[in-house]
Amino acid sequence: MMAFKTETDAEQRATSRRADWFGILSRSHAGELDALAADAADGVAFEWLRRPHVGLVMVRGRAGGTGQVFNLGEMTVARASVRLADGTVGHGYVQSRDKRQAELAAIVDALLLQEHRHDEIMAKVIEPLRQKEQTRRIEKSRKAASTKVEFFTMVRGENPA
């Protein structure tokens, strides 16, 4: 595919950092995001570019995991977009239907784009959320790992000596 503009390395890094925090925010648990971000978001002046609303995303799969693309089914998402007083635009996408969570995610995204707030918000909101997600993922994986098996094929008609 033709690239219409060439991104500089710095732009690419910024994009991938932003994609990273989007992933953390979208998969956060609503209560946890609220606990960590409500203070920071409180009192932030903004206008709505897109009021929080609920919609569907069609989830696609591939035949055999690598083949023909097909539509598996839809999932609910809530999303919102805000513009801060200095013009910074933030977007929020979260799984399921919590509009407040989408609003918070959009405000946090905008704050993270502000140079003077970035580090503070990363430390106060994103890193703790990442930590919680990581802890949950590892615990699930350790539980699954406890059920790992070694199957032995029994050879018929063979008596152990």
């Binding site: 569907l56 995303v57 839809e74 994986s141 059920t147």
Partner: peptide, 29 residues
């Protein structure tokens, strides 16, 4: 579902990157 707007279509999910909770094969031990 007919009352909700569709906001996007996803990229195909990559099941090779699944966080596994169960995974078995009947063909290879």
């Amino acid at each position: 579902r007919t009352t909700l707007p569709r906001v996007a279509v996803s990229e195909p999910i990559d099941t090779s990157k699944m966080a596994i909770r169960r995974r078995i094969s009947a063909t290879f031990k």
